[in-house]
């Protein structure tokens, strides 16, 4: 199976990294890989929200935005 590389930013801990995922990996696969509960985030690509079953593409830039209230 081929691999894809995805740039991922997580707003809650202010991190940016590139992750290697299996070809055909979904948003849910990405969240599982970085141990994030999907209930606690929304996910965007090119400033558009995408759902957990959306397939990712090579070189996608993904933002993971926390839904947790700040205080």
């Amino acid at each position: 199976m081929g691999k894809i590389n995805v740039k991922v930013s997580v707003d809650r801990n202010n991190t940016n990294k590139t992750l290697e995922l299996d070809n055909e990996a979904s948003v849910m696969d990405l969240l599982k890989k970085i141990n994030i509960n999907p209930v606690t985030v929304i996910v965007s690509r090119n400033n558009e929200l995408i759902l957990e079953d959306e397939k990712l593409n090579d070189k996608d830039e993904i933002k993971i935005l926390s839904v947790i209230s700040g205080g």
């Binding site: 707003d11 809650r12 935005l65 926390s66 947790i68 700040g70 205080g71």
Partner: peptide, 8 residues
């Protein structure tokens, strides 16, 4: 941008 109270 995400902004969490440091006490939370």
């Amino acid at each position: 941008e995400f902004n969490e109270c440091p006490n939370v």
